[in-house]
């Protein structure tokens, strides 16, 4: 077979493969694109309380600027995000180090350590709602047993954000630990051997070798958790529904209520697209950071 004929046959094969995979590709792209395009379109619509629809132009987006609940929701979202992410990264790295060095830890104990993130968030939310109930819950019982004052936990406007961050961190720290553990297991042993020969202390080894080498893995974990944390919904919906007052009313909760309880789908779409843009921004920022710390 001449070269030209071989190239022709290859091209034909490529074309056939493309034609065969095209329906699946088109279907997948449509499934992703349609909801996005539809939401963008809804963001330009006005829905009355009765569902009557009219073109609103950019009115939904200009309404965001003067909407106190939007700015408050943004603040709550960011506060919850920063607090939860810091807790999960710090304790996730610590847990990963414990699991990495405790080689003799039985498999069942390792499984228990990482089990919370396998629990559906709704179940976790219900469980913590009962534990943290100021009257009937176990948390205050434990505090009072040790002579400490009881807390209102989820019912306190001051403590609700830290409490929700703690619940989410209880659930997702093991997930971060699992990612970091994978990173720890892939670190080159030769670097540690060199550090040992040079007489580096365990703290110096962690500070100068482990942490810098782990940074790309930690940033990856941060990206994955950022996407979830900025869209925080389930645990808040189960435990506080955005309260007390609007103290835990994240953008996602606010958008849900505007859309599904007050039926203003247009404004809810604008809120959700703004939140999507924030999520994209955070992911892009972390991606750049990952590039900077790669080794």
């Amino acid at each position: 077979m001449s070269d030209a004929a071989a190239t022709l046959a290859q091209d034909r094969q490529k074309l056939e493969m493309s034609a065969l995979s095209a329906p699946a590709v088109i279907f997948t792209v449509a499934m992703i694109a349609f909801p996005v395009v539809y939401t963008v379109w809804l963001g330009f619509q006005n829905f009355s309380s009765t569902g009557k629809q009219s073109f609103a132009g950019l009115a939904n987006y200009s309404k965001l600027v003067s909407d106190y609940e939007f700015w408050h929701g943004l603040w709550v979202t960011i506060a919850l995000y920063v607090l939860s992410l810091v807790l999960q990264l710090v304790f996730g790295v610590w847990l990963a180090l414990v699991l990495f060095h405790a080689k003799r830890l039985p498999g069942i104990v390792r499984s228990l350590f990482i089990s919370p993130f396998m629990m559906p968030p709704v179940v976790a939310g219900m469980m913590w709602l009962v534990i943290l109930d100021p009257s009937l819950g176990a948390a205050n019982y434990v505090l009072q047993t040790f002579g400490l004052p009881p807390s209102d936990w989820l019912a306190s406007p001051t403590w609700v954000i830290p409490t929700v961050a703690l619940i989410d961190s209880w659930q997702w720290t093991p997930y971060v630990a699992l990612i970091v553990l994978g990173g720890l297991q892939s670190l080159p042993p030769s670097v540690y051997e060199a550090a040992q020969i040079d007489g580096a202390s365990p703290f110096k080894t962690f500070q100068r070798i482990t942490l810098p080498l782990l940074l790309p893995t930690i940033v990856t974990a941060a990206i994955l958790r950022s996407v979830d944390l900025l869209r925080f919904f389930d645990i808040i919906y189960i435990t506080t529904q955005g309260g007390p007052g609007n103290a835990s009313n994240t953008l996602n909760i606010y958008g849900f209520r505007v859309g599904f309880e007050f039926f203003n789908i247009g404004y809810a779409s604008a809120l959700m697209l703004t939140l999507t843009a924030i999520v994209f921004g955070a992911v892009l920022a972390f991606n750049r950071l990952r590039g900077a710390v790669a080794w």
Binding site: D133, P134, S135, N140, P150, D152, W153, L154, A155, S156, T239, T240, G243, P244, G245
Partner: peptide, 9 residues
């Protein structure tokens, strides 16, 4: 004044 702690939830 007379409700349980955390009554707002």
């Amino acid at each position: 004044d007379f409700g349980p702690p955390g009554v707002v939830n």
